[in-house]
Simulated assay, not measured.
Amino acid sequence: MQSIIDWIVNLMEVLGAPGVGIAILLENLFPPIPSEVVLPLAGFTVAQGSLNFLSVFIWSVVGSVLGAYVLYGIGAWLGLARLRAIADWMWLVKASDVDAAMSFFTKYGKPSIFFGRLIPGVRSLISIPAGLDRMNLVTFGLWTTLGSGIWNAILIYLGFILGDNWEKATEYADTYSNVIYAILALIILGFLIFFIRRAIKERGQAQA
């Protein structure tokens, strides 16, 4: 983690606020670079007077949105046909499960993009189903900007007000993330149980 912090500090020293945007862009694509470290550190740098709060915020949102569009493109490239084929190949999952998930996303896609940007572990991945669904690019960008703006502003502000203790903001974010991960794990477990029970039931019907 220290090497990541050193790299971020060097990036901000060389490029200023755009360096924050680049770090957040990469964070969307490479999870080992966590926004929970980048943004509070940027806020601390603002508190020192080295950077401007507004410029840091704007560049961080630009990085978030650009990263989201890259993942949207991956989803659009993958396409529903490929995803259905993958689902048919996988154990327990069916192409119909993909259809059901995409039907849900089509109905609730807009709020899913917004709230997804506030959920660790989902923040980046939520862009992929948007690409699969071919959500309107402007609509996708607006909801991504709004959700990312809230998340980024909170973490930058925490780093700003905590000053030398900016790492506490990372601790707060980690605590929040752990709660979310526990909830997601329970949801995944629930789906896994459903898929297993369905497979057992269908096998029983086939043998009857």
Score class of each variant (00 low, 15 high):
residue 144 T to C: 11
residue 202 E to W: 03
residue 86 I to Q: 10
residue 143 W to E: 04
residue 69 Y to E: 06
residue 42 A to Y: 01
residue 51 L to S: 05
residue 128 I to L: 12
residue 205 Q to G: 05
residue 193 I to Y: 11
residue 82 R to K: 13
residue 38 V to S: 02
residue 116 G to R: 01
residue 127 S to T: 06
residue 182 A to T: 09
residue 27 E to W: 01
residue 21 G to F: 03
residue 29 L to G: 04
residue 123 R to Q: 03
residue 102 M to E: 05
residue 34 P to W: 09
residue 143 W to C: 05
residue 168 K to H: 13
residue 188 I to L: 14
residue 15 L to M: 14
residue 63 G to S: 06
residue 17 A to P: 05
residue 189 L to P: 02
residue 179 V to N: 08
residue 92 L to Y: 06
residue 20 V to D: 00
residue 194 F to C: 10
residue 23 A to R: 01
residue 165 N to D: 06
residue 161 I to G: 07
residue 12 M to W: 02
residue 123 R to V: 00
residue 152 N to R: 02
residue 169 A to M: 10
residue 73 G to S: 15
residue 112 S to H: 02
residue 172 Y to F: 14
residue 185 A to Q: 07
residue 105 F to P: 04
residue 35 S to F: 03
residue 96 S to W: 06
residue 183 I to V: 15
residue 131 G to D: 06
residue 170 T to D: 07
residue 199 A to R: 11
residue 132 L to D: 01
residue 146 L to M: 13
residue 120 P to D: 07
residue 206 A to N: 12
residue 89 W to A: 15
residue 177 S to P: 07
residue 200 I to G: 04
residue 1 M to W: 09
residue 189 L to K: 00
residue 132 L to Y: 01
residue 100 A to N: 12
residue 102 M to D: 04
residue 113 I to R: 00
residue 44 F to T: 02
residue 160 F to P: 04
residue 115 F to M: 06
residue 52 N to S: 14
residue 177 S to E: 12
residue 143 W to F: 15
residue 9 V to C: 10
residue 118 L to A: 07
residue 67 G to A: 05
residue 43 G to L: 14
residue 134 R to G: 09
residue 55 S to P: 12
residue 193 I to L: 14
residue 140 F to D: 00
residue 67 G to M: 05
residue 85 A to W: 06
residue 8 I to N: 00
residue 22 I to Y: 03
residue 52 N to I: 15
residue 45 T to I: 15
residue 137 L to G: 08
residue 87 A to I: 12
residue 197 R to I: 04
residue 99 D to W: 03
residue 162 L to R: 00
residue 81 A to I: 14
residue 30 F to K: 02
residue 191 F to A: 09
residue 115 F to S: 02
residue 155 L to Q: 02
residue 192 L to H: 08
residue 157 Y to R: 09
residue 185 A to N: 08
residue 177 S to A: 15
residue 182 A to I: 05
residue 160 F to C: 06
residue 33 I to W: 01
residue 125 L to K: 02
residue 174 D to L: 15
residue 179 V to F: 15
residue 191 F to K: 11
residue 76 A to H: 09
residue 149 G to Q: 10
residue 23 A to G: 09
residue 90 M to S: 12
residue 15 L to T: 10
residue 127 S to Q: 04
residue 81 A to N: 13
residue 52 N to W: 11
residue 115 F to D: 00
residue 109 G to C: 07
residue 49 G to A: 10
residue 34 P to R: 12
residue 164 D to Q: 12
residue 16 G to I: 10
residue 7 W to S: 14
residue 185 A to E: 08
residue 104 F to T: 11
residue 64 S to M: 05
residue 42 A to N: 03
residue 82 R to A: 14
